[in-house]
Simulated scan of single mutants.
Amino acid sequence: MWRSLSRAGLTNIPTLLTRSAASLLSGFLCLLAPHAATAQDAQEFSTQAGTVLVETLATGLRHPWAVEVMPDGGLIVTERPGRLRILRDGELSAPIEGVPDVAARGQGGLLDVALDPQFATNRALYLTHSASDGDGYGTVLVRATLSDDQRRLTDVRELFRMSKFTGGGQHFGSRIAIDKDGSLFFGIGDRGQRDRAQDPRDHAGAILHINPDGSIPASNPYRGGTEGRAEIWSKGHRNPQGITFDQGDGKLLTVEHGARGGDEVNNPQPGKNYGWPVITYGKDYSGAEIGEGTAKDGFEQPLYYWDPSIAPGALAVYRGSMFPEWDGDLLVAALKYQLLARLERDENGAITSEERLFDGEFGRIRDVVVAPDGALLIVTDEDNGAILRVSKAPTQ
């Protein structure tokens, strides 16, 4: 084709077509690349607390999993394929260098990020991710330091590696909650092998607790390591993907996936067993019964459960000034129904009602955090994932 056009004297057409194709390709790549959104990307929604404004802060992220607010107001966000970026002043950074190699398989990859309580001075952060070895895949937690120019991680050190790697690509957990003493709580799912959740010598299906240097806290129930793994705090969890402390009363709260039903909110206590798969409020995906019912001696009951499953991805407790009506309420990100669930609590902390927000509007909601100004920050777990901000809508 090019030869015949050239012979006809149209020698500039290949160049023009090549430039046109390059322009189209460049435009296509720009659409795929992460970028900050414009101020016009905002929508209003009615809620029981009044009208809220949802602004799109950035798009083009590849399955973002977690977001945290940095002391200077920047947002640090993980992408499941293994990238860590910072959104600041409307600009998304290039991927931060030095992130550990991740096994981005199935539900695995780069998962949570948590900032050390002294981050402003020590620049330390924690990451969970799935890793691979010769036996399969499992969950790992690392500590690292963000460089002064915020372009790379240094001093990357593995603090925890789960005891048994296997071939499945599901139920890795794994969010991090930092207690007031600086110790770390995080969850790991049953890795698709449900009986592992009842084995105290297996890290799967558990809430874990370690010190910031990887050592074992004195409060852990199996600290001696004779009756169970020393890092284990509680067992019987199917796949906990939300974990947080209520700054109001200091309680540890988690939310975990059920099967077709039986998602749970729990308050994990040391040495307690939360039932999976012996008791559950859900059925298998086939419709078959699981375990021995919904209650049995020796197993704890959830604070709240969903049937059918909403597929919870994260949990936050609202303690902020922007929405005083929500003070103390739980906020649960949901993947399956693509919503944010607000669980209202009474003065004793009991869950009394549920409000569902943004149902199906933004895709799979993976994370929710409360920003220092009281607004909510949300990430959507999509090929073209976004960071959203939820605030009070301006009054007319």
Score class of each variant (00 low, 15 high):
G261V: 03
D263Q: 06
R389Y: 05
E264T: 04
G60P: 08
A341K: 08
E292M: 08
D307Y: 13
L330G: 04
G349A: 13
G108T: 07
E300S: 09
L208N: 01
Q118L: 15
V102K: 06
S26F: 15
T280V: 05
H257G: 00
S286N: 15
N273V: 08
V77R: 02
E68N: 09
G275H: 05
L10N: 10
R191I: 02
L5F: 14
P200G: 06
M1P: 08
I76D: 00
R3Y: 13
N384G: 07
V390E: 04
T121N: 09
R7S: 10
P324T: 11
A177W: 07
P394Y: 12
E382R: 14
S6L: 13
S132P: 00
D249Y: 09
G313R: 05
S286W: 11
P64C: 04
G363E: 10
I207F: 04
S147D: 14
Y126T: 06
L92C: 00
Y126S: 03
K164W: 11
V52K: 04
T166L: 12
G282M: 10
G248N: 11
E344R: 15
S147I: 14
I310M: 08
R157P: 02
G360T: 08
T139E: 05
A218N: 07
V317M: 06
L331I: 14
I207T: 05
L75S: 01
V67F: 03
L339K: 12
R85E: 01
G282I: 06
T128G: 06
E354Y: 14
S234E: 10
D133Y: 08
I290L: 11
R356G: 00
A58W: 12
W233E: 01
G205C: 09
G360F: 12
A334L: 11
A314N: 11
I365N: 04
F323T: 08
G363V: 10
Y318C: 11
P64K: 06
L125N: 02
S183E: 01
G189M: 05
G167R: 10
L315W: 08
P14R: 13
L377I: 07
G224F: 14
G242M: 02
S130I: 04
L57R: 04
I351G: 02
L315E: 03
A197K: 06
E55C: 02
T280Q: 01
G134V: 12
R151E: 10
E347T: 14
G9N: 07
D190H: 09
T145V: 15
L75C: 00
I365Q: 05
G136N: 12
Y274R: 07
D249I: 05
H63C: 00
G313Q: 06
N266D: 14
W306A: 00
V368F: 09
P81S: 00
H257Y: 12
L127W: 04
A259M: 06
N220M: 14
